[in-house]
């Protein structure tokens, strides 16, 4: 069973994604900010990371850099309410960029493609 780390400061989003991805047959582990995400990543070694960008403390892009420093091969899907980060060159190092939507079809398809 593939393990997915979902990083989002919004508890409701985390809860939504957890249920949704479990339904899709993934093991899901959660983190509420950048620092927590790095800890979880080290301990849980997920197969894929869904990473929010705008978060208090360490934001997603900073966390992305550190995650990739630890494991340059892990697929990362940036998932943000903002589409503007698409133009940020830091985000280019992620494998995908999906704008948040209540319709999770795109996100789920992207994850499926990357795993």
């Amino acid at each position: 069973m593939k393990k997915i780390l979902v990083v989002d400061d919004e508890k409701n989003i985390r809860s939504l994604y957890e249920k949704e991805l479990q339904d899709e047959g993934y093991a899901v582990t959660l983190a509420g900010n950048g620092r927590e995400a790095l800890e979880r990543f080290s301990s849980e070694r997920p197969d894929l990371v869904v990473l929010d960008i705008r978060m208090p403390g360490m934001d997603g892009l900073e966390a992305l850099g550190k995650l990739l420093a630890e494991d340059p091969k892990v697929p990362v899907v940036l998932n943000s309410a903002y589409s503007s980060y698409k133009d940020n060159f830091l985000s280019w190092s992620a494998d995908a960029y999906v704008v948040k939507s209540s319709d999770l079809t795109e996100l789920k398809e992207t994850i499926r493609r990357l795993l």
Binding site: I13, K100, S101, S102
Partner: peptide
């Protein structure tokens, strides 16, 4: 709009579930 988008994701997502 950005602030609204996140709760919409929750509302819509949970409604889907």
């Amino acid at each position: 709009a950005h602030e609204i988008r996140t709760p919409l994701v929750s509302i819509g997502g949970f409604a889907n579930q």
